[in-house]
């Protein structure tokens, strides 16, 4: 086996091992009950929540198949999963035909991307103001 091939196996082995460990940790331990999880730097510095706040708690609930609690922690993360998977599949497709390209452009083109950017910014603002507290982590 060539050195490059060995290197590749080692690299993907490390990635796979690391991911398995992370899935195990996030499934078993709830970030609310254990203080060894990293805190959001933005929230630590400013006191405001960022669009990613609640992601660790949401992942914990998702790994335990508790979608409702996951949505309460970070609804954007939960709702983005089908979109991200679709995007990943579109990226992986080899030699896409015109129909696929058309759908790719509709779902992941300039307008779609700007729409997503707007959602992220609105979500960011909204979860920091009282009227939108239902979207904030830890609030029902």
């Amino acid at each position: 086996m060539s050195l490059a091939a060995k290197h590749k196996i080692l690299k993907w082995g490390a990635v796979f091992g690391g991911l398995t460990l992370l899935v195990f940790i996030y499934k078993v331990y709830n970030p609310v009950e254990n203080n060894f999880f990293p805190k959001c730097p933005f929230r630590e510095l400013t006191g405001y929540k960022c669009p990613g706040c609640g992601s660790q708690r949401a992942v914990h609930h998702l790994l335990n198949f508790d979608i409702r609690d996951a949505m309460r922690e970070n609804i954007m993360l939960v709702l983005s999963i089908p979109y991200l998977i679709t995007g990943f599949i579109f990226d992986m497709l080899k030699n896409p035909g015109p129909k696929i390209l058309l759908w790719r452009r509709r779902l992941f083109g300039t307008k779609a991307i700007l729409f997503i950017l707007a959602i992220i910014i609105l979500f960011w603002i909204c979860r920091n103001i009282p009227y939108c507290l239902s979207l904030a982590p830890g609030f029902n």
């Binding site: 669009p51 990613g52 993360l77 995007g87 992941f108 997503i116």
Partner: peptide, 19 residues
């Protein structure tokens, strides 16, 4: 429009934003 644009890194960027 009958070709694919270069990689946009959109999925990866959203993941970086969230995590």
């Amino acid at each position: 429009s009958n070709q694919r644009p270069p990689k946009t890194w959109l999925v990866e960027s959203i993941l970086v934003t969230l995590f």
